[in-house]
Design a protein around this nucleic acid. Sequence first.
DNA 1: ACGCATCGCTTAATCGATTAAGTAAAGTAT
DNA 2: ATACTTTACTTAATCGATTAAGCGATGCGT
Lengths: 336, 336
Amino acid sequence: MVKISDISKLCGVSPATVSKALNGASDISQETAKRVRETAAKLGYLPNASARALKLGRSYNIGVLFSDTTGGGISHEYFSRILDSVKVEAERLGYDITFISKDLGKRSMDYYQHAKYRSCDGVIIASANFQDPAIIRLATSEIPTVTLDYTFDSRTSILSDNAQGMESLVRFVYDKGHRKIAFLHGEMTSVTQKRLASFKKTCAALGLEIPAEFIRPAIYHDPRTSGLQTRALMALSIRPTCIIYPDDLSFLGGMSELERHGLSIPDDISVVGYDGIPLSQVLRPRLTTYRQAGEKMGTEAARLLIEQIEQPEIWLPQQITVTGELLPGDTVRSIG
Amino acid sequence: MVKISDISKLCGVSPATVSKALNGASDISQETAKRVRETAAKLGYLPNASARALKLGRSYNIGVLFSDTTGGGISHEYFSRILDSVKVEAERLGYDITFISKDLGKRSMDYYQHAKYRSCDGVIIASANFQDPAIIRLATSEIPTVTLDYTFDSRTSILSDNAQGMESLVRFVYDKGHRKIAFLHGEMTSVTQKRLASFKKTCAALGLEIPAEFIRPAIYHDPRTSGLQTRALMALSIRPTCIIYPDDLSFLGGMSELERHGLSIPDDISVVGYDGIPLSQVLRPRLTTYRQAGEKMGTEAARLLIEQIEQPEIWLPQQITVTGELLPGDTVRSIG
DNA sequence: ACGCATCGCTTAATCGATTAAGTAAAGTAT
DNA sequence: ATACTTTACTTAATCGATTAAGCGATGCGT
């Protein structure tokens, strides 16, 4: 690899001059700077990232954390969209991304240590158990962090607008005439709490009394559980006319269960998903769902993290709420 | 951060001794080594990856390349499964992974330069246009590489067994009595060529004459195009009794088109997918498809790449073919 | 013409870890 | 007792880039 000293020899100046010329320092003459730049380009010079990181204490590398425990958060469409947009935006701003995990080979370390080890300039925490002490340690450390869908004190976070999303779904369904609305919710994370609170609040605002047995726990992205809960709903003496699923994939579990009962969507029962994965719009009937703006969240996360890294003096913690959009689909029937 | 010199002071030895003790050099006494290790553990010492990389010329970091051009290869389930398993295996062996792309911020570079810049010890090329000169440069450079679903001369590659996959699907369909089998194929990559060749060969071996208009081009993961081609198939005077789609998602585009024609699956027409994404097994009827063993491919890719990095002297290029499994599903009807 | 600032460059230290070469002390052989 | 090994360290150079400090040479003001 070409290094600074190669350029310096060819140009007849010291390595220091080359470094300064390439970094646009002020005490280098126009001509020298030009000559150095041209020589560097001719030789195909690229700085050695490790040497820079060592000297500067800055790696131009940001960590991305997808918790191991959720088992491949990456493969969920929502998260892969986030990851992809984080990657694009980070690269646009000159940063690479590296995955942060617990344990690296024989070395056992926590997330904080891993980030330090790789001298990450910052970390985006995308999908994690925010109660995990290792996550808390990282998010309360001196390393700049941005969390997605969760807020730590005095930290920047990007939030999908779960309250608005749920409210718009409930209102959409209500406007179609539905009054008996069931809600299968995911595990009790902060996201779920927001959706559940918004569900209850919106129903109350609309004057709906939702029986307790219409609100049932399921598991995100688990069609089996939502299938079971769908069956439970169908066994009630008073059935809901519309079911809100925790997410689009869970709906699919429910769908097969509904078919088994000989119910067709939306004629016999209306359904609503959450996430707006591409698939949901390819299915017939198109699923009524709320599309979270994953790309925008990823882009914002990367942008704000890098802003914090590069201008710590003007940085202030922010909570950005990103609004998605309701995809009307065809799975909610107009009734009564 | 704790560094070697901190430990050396506490232990009353030189930094060199500490380094050697931690790396298990032979010229360190048992007691000193123990004392050093204990002090290191107590202080929570972690080596500085940049300093190590600079000195050793090894970064314990491998690049993963998902071509930008395909537009978020990451978000396809098959690739995210590969990525996830690469990550897991690489971490198990003590390596981090970083995404490799063209252009980083203002610096414009090709993949090879990017990998050099980050001093990646090796690169896994997962989803890319293998005709791209930048990809070819990387794959023919001195950097160890492993490619997925494509083979470069004298290089290691991991191949999904497309021939076997297609053959098993055709035979499965044939055994159910189908003789008029249509095949929508994806863009003409080497993968597609293998599937197409296998399709033709298997049909020939079974004595089937497939009319040219039964073999039609579509686009991977694009339900719209497969919908159009499905319509074209339905407009033929002699219709196929079974359609093999380029992938599971494309099938969904076909599905809605078939429904529009009032055809139900599998009673009126049989269909087959490819990939075996989880969704395909949640749908009712369950899709008959071929599940590519993405996890195994990713694991093998990481393992072989790291083997090549760590033991270049015993390394020989290999082409590993990973076989998936046919998921019988319920979308192929027994006929005749 | 003398002092002083400015410009443009070089020198040398530094980031943290590794390792070849060197060395002091103890052990072994003759 | 002398010469040679072996053991267990230390010294110092090195990886490549950055940057504070230094230093001649020129320009400027009075």
